[in-house]
């Protein structure tokens, strides 16, 4: 295990050293590191890998958002894909029917999705655990069915020819150009999730996850903070949905928002590590690559993913991120003990 985590540890040390210069420095360094990724991938001669990377980055946004409400606030929601659908449909309809540019349609979609987040979150005020999961599942799935039966929302043909984003004469019309857009969005999303979760609001979310009653008697407005968590995660889903809709080839279909996608998304968060900020990122990368490479076994995919999730919950409830966290905490604890015994000697 030590051997396995050693390179990771080195990376953490490196970025912590950078953070000491200024808190934004590690982010800029990581950003610069990631910029040439499509060039490297295009060397394989297959644009598909860049497309795959873009999809992963969109799912990273989704799972980082889901981690806020599920991992940090402890609210079991299975309606997240519904919010993603709302973001995608809102943005594409504004762009196609009203000619809004992407830069106006996307923020509008984010706001609309945020409002929808309140509705998905409302059951959390009364319900917990499996009951909340069922309620949110119903809400999320009804969004998809609504899209599937309403011609104005695409129904069975989907929405086509969604225009790509454009800055001046520069059009984000191929996978490589789009990569810069989604990568920037994902980085901003991760950075903001760090800011939120390290603040008093983040602590309030965690306190609610750990013990609702103790949180409330220490002055935390539990219903308001639960809703806030839902809204924040909905904002992420809205942004991810809009980015997905405008990505070339500019086509969305209600089949993009099924319960299968939801299970995949849940698996990302669970495997990466619930309540671990990097968990959603790690999980999104691993699960999406597996998902994409096993598409030919689509008929047993949901079953397998569900099974993996059950096994993870039983044998590795904290996920990959949890294992890494555990390793770091143990290390710190041992160090503390050593310092103590040194002091005594």
């Amino acid at each position: 295990m030590n051997l396995l985590l050693a390179p990771f540890r080195g990376l953490v040390d490196f970025f912590q050293a950078l953070a000491r210069i200024h808190r934004i420095v590690p982010w800029l360094v990581a950003y610069v590191f990631l910029l040439p990724l499509p060039e490297i991938l295009s060397a394989t001669g297959n644009d598909y890998y860049i497309y795959l990377t873009n999809r992963i980055l969109i799912f990273i946004l989704l799972s980082v958002g889901l981690n806020i409400v599920k991992g940090f606030c402890g609210q079991v929601t299975v309606g997240h894909i519904g919010l993603y659908a709302i973001g995608a449909v809102t943005s594409s309809l504004l762009a196609i029917n009203y000619g809004w540019p992407f830069w106006a349609a996307m923020p509008a979609a984010v706001v609309v999705t945020g409002l929808a987040g309140i509705i998905i979150g409302l059951p959390s005020v009364r319900l917990e655990g499996a009951y909340l999961a069922l309620a949110t599942l119903g809400l999320g799935e009804s969004v998809r069915i609504m899209i599937a039966v309403t011609p104005a929302l695409g129904s069975s043909t989907g929405i086509m020819l969604i225009p790509p984003p454009q800055v001046g004469s520069f059009v984000f019309d191929d996978f490589q150009k789009y990569y810069y857009l989604v990568m920037t969005a994902a980085m901003i999303g991760i950075y903001l999730s760090f800011s939120i979760l390290r603040s008093a609001t983040g602590r309030a979310f965690m306190a609610i996850r750990e013990d609702v009653i103790a949180a409330s008697v220490h002055g935390i407005n539990v219903p308001a903070n639960k809703l806030l968590a839902f809204v924040i995660s909905a904002l992420y889903a809205g942004a991810a949905g809009a980015l997905f809709a405008h990505m070339p080839p500019g086509f969305i279909h209600h089949n993009n928002f099924t319960i299968i996608e939801m299970v995949t998304l849940l698996l990302m968060v669970v495997m990466g590590g619930i309540g671990h900020i990097w968990g959603g990122v790690i999980g999104a990368i691993i699960v999406y690559i597996i998902y994409d490479n096993t598409l030919e076994f689509y008929h047993i995919q949901p079953l397998t993913f569900g099974l993996i999730m059950v096994l993870l919950v039983v044998f590795m409830p904290q996920g990959i991120g949890g294992v890494i966290d555990r390793y770091l905490v143990t290390k710190r604890f041992v160090k503390l003990r050593e310092e103590k015994s040194d002091g005594a000697a």
Binding site: A200, R203, A204, M206, A207, R209, E210, D211, A214, A215, H218, G219, I220, G275
Partner: peptide
């Protein structure tokens, strides 16, 4: 207690 949170975070929640 908020057992998965650190000792410092526990008291910081109190200060909320």
């Amino acid at each position: 207690l908020f057992s998965e949170m650190t000792v410092l975070q526990n008291v910081m929640v109190g200060y909320h």
